[in-house]
Design a protein around this nucleic acid. Structure first.
Length: 118
RNA sequence: CCAGAAGUUUGAACACUCGCAAGUCCUUUUAGGACUUGAGGAAAGUCCGGGCUCCAUAGGGCAAAAUGCUUGGUAACACCAAGGCGGAGAGAUCCGAUGGAAAGUGCAACAGAAAGUAAACCGCCUAGAUUUUUAAUUUAGGUAAGGGUGAAACAGUGAGGUAAGAGCUCACUUAUCUUGUGGGUAACCAUAAGGUACGGUAAACCCCGUUUGGAGCAAGAUCAUGCAGAGAAGUUGAGGCGGCCCGCUGAUUCUCGGGUAGAUUGCUUGAGAUUUAUAGUGAUGUAAAUCCUAGAUAGAUGAGUGUAGAUGAGUGCGUAAAGCACUUUGAACAGAACCCGGCUUAUAGAGCAUCUGGGAGC
RNA sequence: GGGCUUAUAGUGUAACGGAUAGCAUACCUGACUUCGGAUCAGUUGGUAGGGGUUCGAAUCCUCUUAGGCCUA
């Protein structure tokens, strides 16, 4: 797992990718299916929580994505957590993120077949 | 035992799995392995003061700003200690931007007669006039003792004195000034004599004393990468010393357009830490020994699970308190970014030692 | 890193240290109307939070909180 650091990395994801979560979801995820590596960028607003909390969520998300990498996920993601996500438990966070990524991957794999059938 | 006051220390343990940064070593070679180390008392706010770097070795004047009892401490301070004075409290103790109002200017709503070189509303007294004549009205004076207003009204009490009164006089008291004496380094305190009764506000302007050159690690130094030049001013002094003038310096500077934006250093050995001795009421100083203890760069220093578990809540036993058992909950404020000394603000809980008042027992 | 500045009713704004903190609009109540709007009458609601100076503070000083702007 690697982290997105430079401004141009973020810009590339924003240009090529799209939102894969619903509007009322507590965490917003921007995704781009590209390459075999798993890359994550994290954006937390200053108004959401103080510096200690921001670092804490960042570490938790890193730990979650390390596990997800072992399960075989790939792609480039930008995460934007809100207050609801930050205050939830570790297990909730992990389940939610895994579900989001699974949905995204299933759609990516299914869509070409779907078109052929039509 | 209850109620308070003030100080200081600490501020989340163990095991397993996975993972981050720096350094050292090893293997193989630019990846992997082993070992060691890795966030606070406030790292925060950025409110003061310094170090360090560049600009004159940081110079003079004006302006501006800060500060304001005394002595000491310190690299320095708007910090700290001890003391003086004033205020709060029954006390331990706490609070104080605490120089000058007799250099000048201003301000004081409402109320009140009057808010400052003054003042007569009611009242008191004297004289005259009129009338309804031991009284009332009115005119001219005297009067700050009494009333009422206000946050604040030119000293308080008593006696004498007087037409009535008044520091007008006297005694004691209060405040303050001058001089002397004694104590204290000093702020100041005590006391004697003589004078005075001169209001408040400077966190209003102001006056007086003291202090302050500017910029900030994106300071500054070095190496790479990249591009395209054009115009204007300038040794008859551009620009700089970021408020202005003097003074100093002495060749580049400005505008438009184009281009690159990576790395090294500064960077952690320091007004350092710990222990002991010693000087001092204390802040703090001195000496010796030992130790080296984060240096990231969108920002590392951890994540999960389990054990144990402060505290809170509930239930049961118990007359009640204390206590015991079971269930559940599962730990405050907060993240270094050049470095130090303070201040301020946030902070669950735990420990240590001290003082005051009250109650009960011996 | 270094400076400056703001906070007044739901909203937009006034206010010399002395007011019961003003004005507009919105909200609410009543009248008018068959009903609604417009109109008329009336009510509610506020100095960002602590502490100090002063007889008296929205105003002066100071700390905190939340914004905004300039600059390197």
């Amino acid at each position: 797992m690697k982290t997105l650091k430079k401004k141009r990395d973020f810009q590339r994801v924003f240009d090529g990718g799209r939102f894969i979560t619903k509007r009322e979801s507590p965490i917003k995820v921007y995704a781009l299916k590209e390459g075999t590596d798993l890359m994550v960028g994290i954006m937390i607003r200053k108004t959401v929580i103080n510096a200690v909390g921001r670092n804490y969520t960042k570490r938790q998300i890193k730990a979650i994505f390390l596990d997800l990498e072992k399960e075989g996920f790939s792609g480039q993601y930008i995460l934007m957590p809100t207050k609801g996500f930050v205050k939830s438990e570790f297990k909730e966070k992990k389940d939610r993120l895994r579900r989001i990524l699974q949905n995204f991957h299933n759609k990516q794999n299914r869509n070409p077949n779907h078109r052929k059938n039509l």
